[in-house]
Design a binder for these strands. Sequence first.
DNA 1: GCCCAGGTGAAGC
DNA 2: GCTTCACATGGG
Length: 284
Amino acid sequence: METTRTFALRDYNLATTLTCGQAFRWQQQDRWWTGVIGTRWVRLRSESGSITAETAEPVADWDWLTHYLQLHVDLGEVLRAFPNDEPMRAAVAACRGLRLLRQDPWECLASFILSSTKQIVQIRQIITLLCERYGEPLAVVPGGTRASAFPAPARLARATEAELRACKMGFRAPYLRTTAGLIAGGQCDLERLRDLPVEVARAELIKLPGVGRKIADCVLLFAYGSQSAFPVDVWVMKALRQLYFPRRRVSLQRLHQFAASHFGPSAGYAQQYLFHYMRTGGRT
DNA sequence: GCCCAGGTGAAGC
DNA sequence: GCTTCACATGGG
């Protein structure tokens, strides 16, 4: 049992991974990245060849952290499965060490319901308010900033629409509240979806209010790890059209077909590389 | 003021 | 089927 542990690894850009728009609660404080994974407060520090983690309370088994960070993944193997074309070579060069996390399905689903037509900085604001107001307080290190767990579905289902709107989520409030109720009531079982074929799980997710193809694909990829999920938002659409179909009109449906056939067994990773590449304009 | 942001659902054709 | 529009809020 200890509160600190160091993990040896390579090809892991912690800062890019935690801020590239897949998770929304990580904050930089001095040399540490502070966040919450499940019901544990944790902070992470990256050094060359290792990541050091510190928790508030002693930990016997660190699997929750290595699983979240996907430390066992061989990034070289992932990248070798990318198509060998110019757009992907440029994206890889711009996103050194970018990894996919493996997040909690409910937090991921709720976060992306709040993401629609919002900039990442605003999504972070909304989620911060939501956690402060409705999440269970967590133990932190002495002198650490207060922290809360992501609010449980039942807690958000119990909030009023007006209360949720006060967290600045606007028209997304009824979507979040109703979906929270369906999860809390067991009409949708997020743990069961983990074991279903990806097409079936996607169809189940899309039944939830405020969840369409894009948000369903985010949950399939970021929470369940389905590499065939390829979320197409405005940035990825821009990337596909500019880089693969310049000066042509291509429908969203056609882009999905192209993505499904072109990007291979690391498609989900390829999507995140294109997303980050476009958002940062090729800067690292 | 204007356009845009990790979209979705409903209404119109 | 596909296209258009409303929906809140804040950044640039």
